[in-house]
Amino acid sequence: MIEVSHLTKKYGHRLAVEDVSFAVADGGICGLLGPNGAGKSTIMNILTGYLSATSGQVTVAGHPLPEEADAAKKCVGYLPEQPPLYPEMTVQEYLDFAAELKGIKKKADRKEQVRKAARRTGLEEVLPRLIRSLSKGYRQRVGIAQALLGAPQLIILDEPTVGLDPAQVIEIRRLIQELGKTHTVILSSHILSEVQAVCSQVLILSKGRLAASGSLQELTADGRSLEEVFLELTGGETEESTGEEDE
């Protein structure tokens, strides 16, 4: 599904990602971990075609980037940390609009895609409601629903449970687990318990480099917790201690 080889991204003279290589196979859920500034968002933006690499090779669903960016984008559904929702629209209006933006031209096709996405994300009963009236948990569901439009093979979720209450977190985690049965999912999160709960593969980034890659079982095979492995590989850095935004 995804092949990344010797990926490097510079912003001016500063390295955001340096010589990163990994692969993610079809199916399952891959956790992308790292402190702020580790390079998570940069990698996600490259995979979605919004950024170009400075050097290295990136292939998504058989499409090399940036050479076949348009074809690759059609294979990817993306939920950014701040979903681009329009609060004055109803859920139905927003999903129709998002489907049109994704190039689903026939009205009947858009209607069917929206219906399926709403059903999978538990939004059927709130389709007539204004987005501004929804709880944060339901707004996240709307964001995930738009990511499903166009039937992408790969779903990329950036901090999908941030700011949710415990009940909402459980609901979104269940939804992510369901998505992992039919899609390849990349989940970026700083919540280690979340990654441990839903992910089969884990990538750990530190200071722009890949510190570890493997299954959850492989990374914790010596009896250590994922938290202990993470803290060792990132030099004890935490989200709070870096003092900078992820790039």
Results as ranks from 00 to 15, higher is better:
113 Q>P: 07
146 Q>K: 01
49 G>N: 06
227 E>F: 13
117 A>P: 10
42 T>K: 00
132 R>M: 11
195 V>E: 05
172 I>M: 10
166 P>N: 09
143 G>R: 01
77 G>N: 08
55 S>M: 07
215 S>E: 02
240 E>L: 14
114 V>H: 01
223 G>H: 13
207 K>I: 11
27 G>M: 15
128 P>Q: 10
80 P>Y: 05
193 S>T: 05
127 L>C: 06
1 M>I: 04
15 L>C: 05
113 Q>D: 06
30 C>R: 10
81 E>Y: 08
232 E>W: 06
7 L>K: 02
99 A>E: 02
62 G>L: 07
89 M>L: 08
120 R>L: 05
31 G>V: 13
194 E>P: 01
194 E>R: 00
159 E>P: 14
67 E>L: 09
237 E>R: 15
214 G>M: 10
176 I>T: 05
107 K>Q: 08
188 S>C: 11
49 G>I: 07
58 V>E: 05
74 K>C: 00
169 V>Q: 04
16 A>S: 09
176 I>Q: 02
142 V>C: 00
217 Q>K: 15
55 S>E: 09
5 S>M: 09
70 D>K: 08
242 T>C: 15
106 K>R: 07
69 A>N: 05
54 T>K: 04
195 V>N: 04
39 G>K: 03
37 G>D: 06
62 G>F: 05
92 Q>C: 06
180 G>M: 09
22 F>Y: 15
